[in-house]
């Protein structure tokens, strides 16, 4: 029997989507922002039916933020062994990524959190507002590297 990861990489390569197989259960796809929804739809057709996590990673030296969707499958027992990381980049200048809500509803929580923590807008997500942070939170986007944690106390004398 063919391994699910091989089936996946063949299927994706036939669609000209570059896929990087990392191990038996992990693969990653790096796509341009504009192709994100399209690739997501391909993945959905393959049987990937939910988003596990939406992660934003800030790279200030490159001036851009990486958005990673970890997707996998519930309905297909074999595909469930694989987690695919769907990665895309967005510039500081236009921090906007198309939302994958139309493909996977389960991206809702992660996209909202990434919006409030890193300031990446997901166009198409109906709830682009704060989720965890209080309304009067000062200093926007705490998960950016430029946000320094304020430490206080008697023995704090050097900046962290």
């Amino acid at each position: 029997m063919q391994k699910p990861i091989d089936v996946l990489s063949q299927a994706l390569q036939s669609k000209k989507i570059p896929v990087k197989v990392e191990s038996e259960g992990r693969a990653s796809i790096e796509v341009e922002k504009k192709d994100l929804v399209q690739v997501a739809k391909v993945l959905k057709d393959l049987g990937f039916d939910h988003v596990k996590a939406v992660t934003g990673i800030d790279y200030p030296d490159q001036g851009r933020i990486q958005v990673v969707y970890h997707v996998s499958s519930y309905s297909d027992v074999n595909l469930a062994k694989v987690i695919v990381a769907l990665k895309t980049w967005t510039n500081y200048k236009e921090l906007e990524v198309p939302s994958l809500m139309e493909v996977w509803k389960s991206a809702w929580t992660g996209e909202r959190e990434t919006y409030e923590m890193l300031g990446v807008k997901f166009s198409g997500n109906p709830d682009m507002k704060r989720l965890f942070l209080p309304e009067d939170f000062e200093g926007v986007y705490p998960l950016r590297k430029s946000y320094k944690i304020k430490t206080e106390g008697l023995f704090v004398d050097r900046p962290s």
Binding site: D49, H50, V51, K52, Y74, S75, W104, K105, S106
Partner: peptide
């Protein structure tokens, strides 16, 4: 339902 559970993650 099963479909909802999968869709909502």
């Amino acid at each position: 339902t099963r479909e909802q559970a999968i869709e909502w993650g």
